[in-house]
Amino acid sequence: MRELSEATGRRIRFVPLAPGEFVAELTGPGWQAAEAEDCAEAVSPMRRGMGSHTSDGVWRALGRRPRDFTDYAKAAVRTWHD
């Protein structure tokens, strides 16, 4: 969140939620329960830290080296404000 906060100039924080809380946050605004549960399942590996390793996925999918998240955040913020 530090990278996004610095890039946007706004305080952005991560609030960890248990799967049931996450589903409730999605269904409150109108998501269907089944869709919310599917989304909770899809992000479960990230919540458990399973996406913290570096792999060659960007190279294989896009044919280029991955870029640093800080660089991505800075570039993305320019797009969000255009």
Results as ranks from 00 to 15, higher is better:
Ala7Val: 12
Ala7Glu: 11
Ala7Gln: 08
Ala7Asn: 03
Ala7Asp: 13
Ala7Leu: 08
Thr8Tyr: 09
Thr8Ser: 15
Thr8Asp: 13
Thr8Ile: 13
Thr8Arg: 12
Thr8Leu: 15
Thr8Lys: 11
Thr8Gly: 02
Gly9Arg: 06
Gly9Ile: 02
Gly9Glu: 06
Gly9Asn: 10
Gly9Tyr: 11
Gly9Leu: 01
Arg10Val: 08
Arg10Met: 14
Arg10Cys: 12
Arg10Asn: 08
Arg10Asp: 13
Arg11His: 00
Arg11Ile: 06
Arg11Lys: 10
Ile12Gly: 09
Ile12Val: 15
Ile12Ser: 03
Ile12His: 14
Ile12Met: 14
Arg13Asn: 03
Arg13Met: 14
Arg13Cys: 09
Arg13Glu: 15
Arg13Trp: 08
Arg13Phe: 12
Arg13Tyr: 01
Phe14Met: 08
Phe14Thr: 14
Phe14His: 08
Val15Ala: 14
Val15Met: 10
Val15Cys: 06
Val15Gly: 04
Pro16Ala: 11
Pro16Gly: 06
Pro16Arg: 11
Leu17Pro: 01
Leu17Val: 05
Leu17Gly: 00
Leu17Gln: 04
Leu17Ala: 11
Leu17Arg: 13
Ala18Pro: 04
Ala18Glu: 03
Pro19Gly: 04
Pro19Met: 10
Pro19Asn: 10
Pro19Ile: 03
Gly20Asp: 06
Gly20Ala: 05
Gly20Cys: 04
Glu21Lys: 00
Glu21Thr: 03
Glu21Gln: 12
Phe22Leu: 15
Phe22Tyr: 15
Phe22His: 15
Phe22Arg: 15
Phe22Cys: 09
Val23Tyr: 09
Val23His: 09
Val23Leu: 04
Ala24Asn: 03
Ala24Tyr: 00
Ala24Gln: 04
Ala24Phe: 05
Ala24Cys: 09
Glu25Trp: 01
Glu25Met: 13
Glu25Tyr: 05
Glu25Arg: 15
Leu26Met: 13
Leu26Ile: 08
Leu26Gln: 02
Thr27Gln: 00
Thr27Ser: 08
Thr27Asp: 07
Thr27Val: 14
Thr27Ile: 02
Gly28Met: 08
Gly28Gln: 09
Gly28Val: 04
Gly28Tyr: 04
Gly28Thr: 05
Gly28Pro: 02
Pro29Asp: 06
Pro29Arg: 07
Pro29Lys: 07
Pro29Met: 07
Pro29Trp: 07
Pro29Thr: 07
Pro29Ser: 10
Gly30Val: 14
Gly30Gln: 05
Gly30Asn: 11
Gly30Glu: 11
Trp31Ala: 11
Trp31Gly: 01
Trp31Lys: 12
Trp31Thr: 01
Trp31Arg: 03
Gln32Thr: 09
Gln32Glu: 11
Gln32Ile: 05
Gln32Lys: 10
Ala33Tyr: 05
Ala33Trp: 01
Ala33Ile: 07
Ala33Pro: 01
Ala34Met: 01
Ala34Trp: 00
Ala34Ile: 07
Glu35Arg: 14
Glu35Pro: 10
Glu35Cys: 02
Glu35His: 14
Glu35Ser: 15
Ala36Val: 08
Ala36Pro: 12
Ala36His: 02
Ala36Ile: 06
Ala36Tyr: 00
Ala36Trp: 01
Ala36Asp: 04
Ala36Arg: 10
